[in-house]
Amino acid sequence: MSEQTSPTPKNSRIGLAVATGIVVLLIILAVVKFSGKEDDIATTPETITPTTNEQTTTTRTYKDGTYTATGAYTSPGGPETIVISLTLKGGVVTDATAQPQAEQPISKKMQQAFSQNFKGMIVGKNINEVTLDKVSGSSLTPKGFNDAVEQIKTQAAISA
């Protein structure tokens, strides 16, 4: 029953992870570009390399390291800033944090919510790679339930 009960195929998760990585990178680049605080930003040499992706014709490579940038914007309550740090290794974002700096209560709340969600993509680790006392998730199903699912599948196969 594995193929029917798995809600998220692995490939699409990997795809999402990559997509999110790119989105995060684009956000960071936008912040870096518009922050205007050159001193805070570690600048990197840009090189143009060919790419296999049909939709883009150029890509940039970046030096390994942690980059920090301050993003400034105007909220309805006045100007606000947020500090974003990200660690690059081999062109891949390996860590990212957002530090809320907001002063207006509403902005504060929104930045906190953003920084909580910012880390983004969650990945699984094989159970045998970690030391655990227990595992918690969806409750193991009763035998009767699984039997019923199997019976329905068998019936469906016969009538098909």
């Binding site: 998220t8 699984g124 159970i127």
Partner: peptide, 19 residues
């Protein structure tokens, strides 16, 4: 404390974190 793995709903041989 008890170390409890949080089951990955997309792959029950994995955990996504530890409580």
């Amino acid at each position: 404390p008890l170390r409890v793995g949080l089951e990955n709903p997309a792959d029950t041989t994995q955990v996504i974190g530890i409580v």
